[in-house]
Nucleic acid binder design. Sequence first.
DNA 1: GTGGTCTAGACCACA
DNA 2: GTGGTCTAGACCACG
Lengths: 167, 167, 167, 167
Amino acid sequence: MQKAYFLRRVGFLYLLFVLFTIEQMCYTNYITKGGGRDMFIEIKANSDVPIYIQLANQLIEGIARGELKPGESLPSVRAFAADLGMNMHTVNKAYHYLEEKEFIQIVAKSGVIIQPNKIPKATADQKQQLADQIRPILAEGIVLKLSEEEMVDMLRELVRDIKEGIQ
Amino acid sequence: MQKAYFLRRVGFLYLLFVLFTIEQMCYTNYITKGGGRDMFIEIKANSDVPIYIQLANQLIEGIARGELKPGESLPSVRAFAADLGMNMHTVNKAYHYLEEKEFIQIVAKSGVIIQPNKIPKATADQKQQLADQIRPILAEGIVLKLSEEEMVDMLRELVRDIKEGIQ
Amino acid sequence: MQKAYFLRRVGFLYLLFVLFTIEQMCYTNYITKGGGRDMFIEIKANSDVPIYIQLANQLIEGIARGELKPGESLPSVRAFAADLGMNMHTVNKAYHYLEEKEFIQIVAKSGVIIQPNKIPKATADQKQQLADQIRPILAEGIVLKLSEEEMVDMLRELVRDIKEGIQ
Amino acid sequence: MQKAYFLRRVGFLYLLFVLFTIEQMCYTNYITKGGGRDMFIEIKANSDVPIYIQLANQLIEGIARGELKPGESLPSVRAFAADLGMNMHTVNKAYHYLEEKEFIQIVAKSGVIIQPNKIPKATADQKQQLADQIRPILAEGIVLKLSEEEMVDMLRELVRDIKEGIQ
DNA sequence: GTGGTCTAGACCACA
DNA sequence: GTGGTCTAGACCACG
């Protein structure tokens, strides 16, 4: 009897732990209406990556895989913030971050749309920036004994995942 | 005569210019004696990447290209900080960051050495972490109309640069 | 034959490109019949300048270059809004903005006319207002290493452009 | 007697009015320590120009007249905000606005400095932007019967004022 | 209803 | 002590 109770208690604690973990890992996993289909946004609360950057990255992936099409409008800062359970300013910051990269256009008092002008191909500067970001990660990969080919495979797989929307 | 003087003056001005530029871009560009050879550490003050991470990354690259060999000792926190003109705490933080990754060993009151045990091949977890870091960068690359092949080429070139120590 | 077709196709694509660009840059590029001649109104949707201010500025330029003459009537709010594809309120606001500056007269239930009374020369107050608006722009110009003469030249050129209706 | 009382009351109301006006017009007129000399920052609370833009403009003038020299550090966002009686975020916004223009450098967790690299001469793009900002003001000047020469004189005077720090 | 601006107050990681 | 980030709540002007 004692044992059964113990087990039940452990089970309960375990459940609590799982719930807590889930809550900590992804405090939001909401849906935003984009065009006809829906789009999942997943934010990790305990990440060292700022929330607004995470949001921006997810939107970038949406653009990358063509789910968010040029000219399409994004939710208003307030509506999006409410959906995602975060503050207006955080969404606003993500939007301005993306506007700086010219991936979206913020039309004051009207709304936010995916860049309707063709996004131009990466300039040498932009490529250099991307390279600077990737470089330390690759160095770490090399130290961890990953061969060049393994890393190339990883890259190809990631590109496929992004384009197919696999988390 | 007039011409020779002119040339010398231009040379001098050019030197000043170079020094000025270097000083502005990287507040440190020092040399640290590791093992037999020297190694350049370059820190960008005006970067959004924390200094201790920049330092750790440069050391990781040193390990990646075999310049820092297993068992070799690194400068003491104090000496390194003095050389690099940065705070002791910063160097310390970089060391602990690398120790956590098990790329180095910190032996209390003795010193710091490059991991003498063979660094094991990346676990699935570690690979996943690397992938998570690369993913948003690739997504941005895709939005900027880089093809998969271009990104693979970029990766291969970066790996070559790292192994050959090209900045 | 092959060549002629090719040229036609290029022309068509170019036309498409131009239309696309115009549509993106300025959501309206309409004509309004004012007096005898026509006048172009160009609104940039993605500007930080409010639309009603943009409209008012274009009308001010029309007055400045004498295209809109004292006593001439402007389109009704309703008709103008329809022509420009914008909200009635916006046109209304532009009109009231201009009326406040005494550049036009709004006669209730009758229409809007360009100020028929001679517009008096700028008062000290008005000059001060203009100066206050220009000042920060000039300061920025100075920081950007523009000489006083360059800025004077810029001013002269702008005055010429305004008077000749060059965009 | 009645009259004296009335006058006193009017005097009191007038005093209140003056105080109110002063408070409304410039709610701050603070000093910030820059190098050896002090610098006046004046913010108009009831202006339609956002506070953070006003602040940025005053700093730009400081740079323009050489009072703020390259490499010099600016107050921390919190200290500056306290001095000016405004919110940290407002100062922060002004700083980021200036950083975007590359007039200052924000070094994370360290401080803010006036751009130490030479600020390059205005590009064609930047000149165009300045021209676009000045144009409507000039058009208004023309309508107010200011001659080109009068406006040139106004510009020269403003440049002199900026360089000599005359408000 | 939209984005823009501003305030107040909080925690964090870096240096 | 610094800037970075995040939240909560407010008012405003534009459309």
